[in-house]
Design a protein around this nucleic acid. Structure first.
Lengths: 111, 111
DNA sequence: CCGTCATTTCAACATCTCTTGAGAGGTCGA
DNA sequence: TCGACCTCTCAAGAGATGTTGAAATGACGG
């Protein structure tokens, strides 16, 4: 992930509806959810949901596939991991102050 | 870090000048840098730099302290770690797909 | 082929955000 | 105190972004 991609990813995540969608899809797992289901879950009209889903897909944070009449969206896990990596990229140049607490946060993660 | 804080943090990081500033300060270490030095480093006028520094401080990503005539800004390392933690909070609910690549990214980190 | 369902596209509008330049506020040395 | 230095504040304008509702597209069953 380069700086431009990170910029787009941060912009995509800086909007409440979009952040809700990403978190919903991360929880939903690789199978994903239909656009209509997502819109209803976050309380957005169909056109509003579509607008934000496009934005997230453009930013590379989610992917889509058609399944008969529905379009299923799912989280792009590698992109999210890349974003985490980007945030931590410069932390070790003699100053481990970022890494240490992040490592602790990660250790609390049960996977 | 709650969802509102994360939203503000992502908004703060979604602007090129501000992302440059954060990365510069992360590299600079806990001592921080003066506003003028930062502005020059990222090619911003004094008022532009001040605008973005205020924005970042408001978002909790950097802190400031006066040192005689200068105002020194430094990275808020715990807040950045909190953001990493937030990104990874929901990943382990039966779906370790985010954690695994992020763990790998972290392992490449030499601290 | 037709009606229905699921989603996207479009244009218009309101709103937020960034940039710019001029000026004001503290801080220090002479 | 005066002048120089460093930074912040303010108002105005340009541009980007989000919302809305109506219409268009594509897929399926009868």
């Amino acid at each position: 992930m380069d700086e431009t991609q990170a910029l787009n990813a941060f912009a995509a995540l800086s909007q409440e509806t979009r952040l809700q969608i990403v978190r919903l899809l991360v929880k939903a797992g690789p199978d994903g959810l239909a656009a209509g289901v997502i819109g209803e879950a976050v309380g957005a009209s169909s056109s509003k949901a579509s607008f934000h889903l496009s934005h997230l897909e453009q930013a590379g944070l989610i992917t889509s596939r058609r399944e008969s009449r529905s379009i299923l969206y799912s989280a792009a896990y590698p992109a999210l991991a890349g974003l985490v990596g980007f945030l931590m990229r410069d932390c070790c140049q003699g100053h481990p102050e970022v890494c240490e607490p992040a490592m602790a946060a990660l250790a609390a993660c049960a996977c």
